[in-house]
Design a protein around this nucleic acid. Sequence first.
DNA 1: GTTGAGCGTT
Length: 464
Amino acid sequence: MDSDQGKLFIGGISWETSEEKMREYFSKYGEVVQTVIMTDKMTGRPRGFGFVVFADPSILDRVLQDKHTIDGRTVEAKRALSREEQQTSTRSANPNAGKSFASGGNIRTKKIFVGGLPPTLTEEGFRQYFENYGTVTDVVVMYDQSTQRPRGFGFISFDTEDAVDRVLHKSFHDLNGKLVEVKRALPKDANPGGGGRTMGSGGYQGYGSSGGNTSTYDSRMEANRYIQPQAAGGGYPTYGSSGYGAPGYGYGAANNPVGYGGYSVGGYGSANAAYGAPAGAYGNPNAPNAGYVSGPPGAPRSPWNNQAPSGYGSAGYGGNTGYGAAGWSATGMGSGGTGSTPTGQSPSATAGYGNQGYGYGGYGGSEGSYANVNSYGAVGGRAAGGPNSNVGGSGADQQGASAAYMGGGYGDTNGNSGYPNSGWRADPSQGGGYGAAQTNGPPSGQVGYGGGYGSAASRQAQQQ
DNA sequence: GTTGAGCGTT
């Protein structure tokens, strides 16, 4: 992360020490861009640590070698961990994954979140400064609705992405001696959130055809704020190693739009799930979907509509089956995957499979009331726990990976709350399905996924 | 007292 470049973590700070004092102290090493002391949100009490950001990252080395005493307390300076690092630091992670993903940005909102606004800053001052970077199309400074106090952050929109990039080139900007921090705004309205139901199919198709994997990552990154940190951490390595990066991987592509909703589930709620379902279906390049898409006669583009659960189930499942046929999931799903999951998967088949089988079937299929949860869970799950981490810790898993997904996924994104069916996880057949799929699957991760989802879906069908 | 908060209005 850019903003972490010149950033040091400062631990053991006296409760007496202020941010100003810290700045004063560290300024002897060079230009200090920001100091912050974290406080307990509830009590307001300082938590005893904070951060200092130097304009020049090369200063850090010197600072790290010295001992520091502020207000009579010896404080400890360490390189600040990026948020991703925090999460993954203890376990083997692909260090490249997080970084490269973090740097890009495919979901471009042309809007920038600006934090740390001084209360005195007006929208005009705000605008005037940023106009140096391009044509400003919108300026918003947020105020508390009831108290009318400035909330210390706002947004600024540009007409071109270039302008946005220029602004984001620096993490901090000096507005007349006040420093503000800029980040790309979370594309909150990138997807018409609750409007999923009313969306025309055009949107979905568009999604389906968009092929960028990176956007998926990016959206994740941004969604990290809303997802439990661990979710993001585990996810990267998993992606990296399991072939997410592979071009054309269905997940990435289809998920782009979905992804956002899915990832952001924590913050954005289930409305987006609706996307997920269609996106999967539409986005899926394979023919089998067609069947799904066309779906039940009565419910053209609303297979996710509760109205048509049966049609839905069949349609959705039909779709899945088709998938499965193409790849693994067929077996895994249909049979419950008990041990007998295909052993001879060809790599290519798997790849293709992963795309579709993955989650989408689940999405579509699970669409009912609890559906969203599932799909999300699924998505989040992957993110949450790598195949190696048994996040969910559902006792039933005979072999952690897949089971972990399930457990982790649901747990993470949903807190289990929406997940009425506790028997699900515990169901041995399911575990078996996973296990089998995973064990046999050549490209490890994907297989597990596919199997997992597929079976999950079928399971639901049964329930209905 | 040792690794972070803030993401929208009409």
